[in-house]
């Protein structure tokens, strides 16, 4: 199991692999606090993204985490909290 912290670069890679990127959005600028919706990712793209994160990191993210994590920073925090729990257990 990968216990490295989950970084914005990891998230960008997974977003690109699973859902691509909107032509009008530059993922390389500071997007940490931009709403996923404004980045062009609707609920299905986030579902695909979370399932890829789950696969890669061997974790299970609950539906509420996904619903609440409306920005990259919130999603990073949620995933890293999960990874820390797993490492502590």
């Amino acid at each position: 199991m990968n216990t490295q912290p989950f970084t914005i670069d990891d998230l960008k890679r997974i977003l690109l692999e699973g859902a691509g990127a909107d032509e009008s959005v530059d993922l390389d600028r500071d997007i940490l606090d931009t709403q996923f919706e404004q980045l062009g990712y609707e609920s299905l793209a986030l579902l695909e993204t979370s399932s890829r994160i789950e696969r890669e990191y061997g974790i299970t993210l609950s539906d509420t985490i996904l619903a609440d994590a409306t920005t990259p920073r919130l999603l990073l925090d949620a995933v890293n909290a999960h990874l820390a729990d797993g490492a502590a257990a």
Binding site: L16, G18, A19, G20, A21, D22, E23, G40, L44
Partner: peptide
């Protein structure tokens, strides 16, 4: 096509 459309 934009990359957003390719995975879907």
């Amino acid at each position: 096509l934009p990359s957003r459309l390719l995975p879907q």
